[in-house]
Simulated assay, not measured.
Amino acid sequence: MSVIDRRPSMRDEPAMEEARFLKFLRARSEDERWELIDGEPMMMMHPPSLRHQIIGQNLERLLNDALERQGTKRFAIREIGLAVETRPDFRPQADVGVIDDHLGDNPYFAERFYLAAEVLSDANTAEYIATKRLRYAEHAECLYVLILSQTECMVEVWARLDEWRGRVYRALDDRIELPEFGFSCELGALYARTQLA
């Protein structure tokens, strides 16, 4: 997701949490897309670039193919609101998330997720992406955070079992393995149907 705006009047107000954020959203146009990052609502660029959408779609499809072969109740979904229980001031929208069919009682945010992925855009700051990555990792059931570039073939994979150390993949034939999901693919598959592949 690309962040393009912050609500300017928020600087002097206390940090927002989910209930106030949802009230804030109800007062906004349905054409606007917002997420809550550390208590501050942030508007996302709409629509994302075609390349951004293709990369997200490739990842979603490859994850779902692997999860279906595995016979699990988990599935990948795009543009999903996520909740980290210990962070009521953090309600992001991930480009791709892996959740299961236990949706819980929250109609807007998945309270249990196993992977969160972000496709970078020009408007993303390093601080914004780092904050999202760290908050995703705080979720007790999250196993992976993926950061995918849309300007070059490059994916960062951050894994709980690797103590959240990031691994960077840059060669088209680099193989990305997410064994808990039965997922294995070459980096190039994530960039299929783009000029980068």
Rank of each mutant, 00 (worst) to 15 (best):
L134N: 07
V145L: 02
R133Q: 12
E152V: 15
H139E: 12
N124E: 07
T125N: 10
A126T: 14
S149A: 14
E118R: 08
D122R: 11
L134D: 11
L143Y: 02
A117D: 04
Q150P: 07
Y136S: 01
Y128L: 07
I147V: 15
T151R: 15
V155W: 12
E152S: 14
N124W: 08
E156I: 14
E156W: 15
L161P: 07
V157T: 11
A130G: 10
T151H: 15
Y136I: 03
M154I: 15
A116F: 06
E141P: 01
A159K: 14
V157M: 11
I129G: 01
E127L: 08
C153K: 15
E127H: 12
H139D: 09
E141H: 09
V145D: 03
A116I: 06
S149F: 13
M154Q: 15
E141Y: 06
Y136Q: 01
A140P: 12
I129Q: 02
W158D: 10
R160D: 07
E118F: 00
L143M: 09
I147T: 15
S149H: 13
A117V: 05
L148A: 11
A116M: 06
A130Y: 10
L161A: 13
Y128T: 07
A117F: 05
E138P: 02
N124M: 01
N124Q: 01
A159N: 07
R135S: 08
C142W: 00
V145S: 11
Y136K: 00
E118D: 11
K132T: 01
A137D: 01
C153Y: 11
Y128R: 04
L146A: 07
Y128N: 09
L146G: 07
R135A: 05
N124T: 01
E127C: 00
D122N: 03
A117P: 06
V155C: 04
V157Q: 07
V157H: 05
E138G: 00
A123L: 06
A130H: 10
M154D: 09
V157I: 12
E118W: 05
R160G: 05
A126C: 05
I129L: 09
S121G: 03
Y128C: 02
Y136D: 02
T125P: 12
A137Q: 01
A140H: 11
E156M: 13
R135N: 11
S121L: 05
L146I: 07
E138H: 02
V119S: 05
A140Y: 09
D122G: 03
L120E: 08
E152Q: 13
T125W: 12
C142M: 03
W158N: 09
L161R: 14
D122S: 06
A137K: 00
L143R: 12
V155S: 08
L143K: 09
D122M: 03
A159W: 04
A116H: 04
E152L: 10
E152N: 08
T125V: 07
A137N: 01
V157C: 12
Y144R: 03
S121P: 04
R133L: 04
K132D: 00
W158V: 15
E152I: 13
L143C: 06
I147L: 13
A117E: 04
A117H: 09
C142F: 01
I129E: 00
L143G: 06
L146V: 07
A126L: 13
A116Y: 03
E156A: 14
A137H: 00
